[in-house]
């Protein structure tokens, strides 16, 4: 091999490298890369299942601007994100701080907290729908017991369906993000806490000056994951409320599904997809920029 000329070796390496990539790459190109690229073409076409795509410029986007269902879906997606992101951050960080202590049963809890995350969405949505059942469900029974006279109708009420979905979404994901926080907490050297303590910092000051800065990269990573996750929230809502009652929990992903798969409007659905894609992309870029500026 050492006698091989550099040029030939490079060709050989390329062939070998591509050979290794091929089985995965072929599938990846056909089923992910090409669809992502095609999306940007379909969005500018008029196309239903039958007949081909015909280019129609910005028509889909003009239509979107006047489509009240689209705006409802966008508004609901923002509503979900505005509560789901901070709530999950707070709960998972709190749990991680607690688990980082020398308490008995921590290992058990770490396992338990992960259960909701590995359980299928169908089962989870069904359990919670029954727990939230307005008349006879355990949640409202407990609320009545502690003195709430007319507990909310949860998934049967247009005002309370989104809070119900947010509760379940947070309940489901907190264990996962807790784990990420916990892993990061354990990399913060104990000496830093000691030094702060010796300098007379109280618990809150130490949290602000030692723990939070130490968690920065992880908090950033988690915020990005949570943001993208919230904006594309889909199966939870589809199974739990199917967007209802009315359009009270209709979100972007579901609107894409509705237009694309139930009404076969591929072109228009692709245009809405672009909006979802652009939001996720933009939010990620903004977070990267802010994070970079703050760490400088």
């Amino acid at each position: 091999m050492t006698t091989m000329p550099a040029n030939r070796r490079r060709w050989r390496n390329t062939a070998v490298g591509l050979g290794f990539l091929l089985p995965n790459f072929a599938g990846f190109v056909i089923l992910t890369l090409v669809p992502v690229v095609l999306l940007f073409y379909y969005a500018f076409t008029e196309w239903n299942m039958f007949g081909g795509a015909t280019f129609n410029g910005l028509d889909n986007f003009r239509r979107m601007a006047g489509d009240s269902s689209f705006w409802t879906a966008l508004r609901n997606t923002l509503y979900y994100s505005a509560f789901h992101i901070p709530l999950t951050l707070a709960v998972s960080l709190g749990l991680a701080l607690l688990l980082n202590r020398k308490l008995r049963g921590v290992g058990f809890f770490r396992t338990v907290a992960f259960f909701p995350y590995i359980t299928s969405i169908v089962a989870i949505a069904q359990i919670w729908n029954m727990l939230f059942s307005p008349g006879f469900g355990p949640v409202n029974e407990v609320l009545r017991w502690i003195g709430v006279d007319s507990p909310p109708g949860w998934t049967t009420s247009a005002d309370w369906s989104m809070p119900a979905v947010i509760v379940v979404g947070t309940w489901r994901e907190m264990g996962y993000y807790m784990l990420l926080f916990l892993a990061a907490l354990q990399t913060i050297p104990a000496q830093l806490h000691e030094a702060a303590r010796v300098d007379g910092a109280n618990a809150w000051q130490r949290f602000r000056a030692v723990t939070l800065p130490g968690l920065r990269p992880t908090t950033f990573f988690i915020t990005v994951l949570l943001t993208i996750g919230s904006f594309k929230v889909f199966d939870l809502i589809l199974v739990m409320t199917d967007g209802g009652p009315g359009q009270s929990t209709l979100v972007l992903s579901q609107y894409i599904y509705k237009k694309g798969f139930q009404e076969n409007e591929f072109g228009y659905a692709s245009a809405v997809s672009i909006v979802l894609f652009a939001i996720c992309f933009l939010v990620t870029v903004i977070q990267f920029v802010v994070n970079k500026r703050r760490s400088e």
């Binding site: 669809p35 594309k232 992903s253 599904y257 894609f277 992309f281």
Partner: peptide
């Protein structure tokens, strides 16, 4: 980083 939800329609076409 691209949400699957945003390319599920073209993927279905493929």
């Amino acid at each position: 980083a691209v949400p699957w939800q945003s390319y599920m329609v073209p993927q279905f076409v493929m």
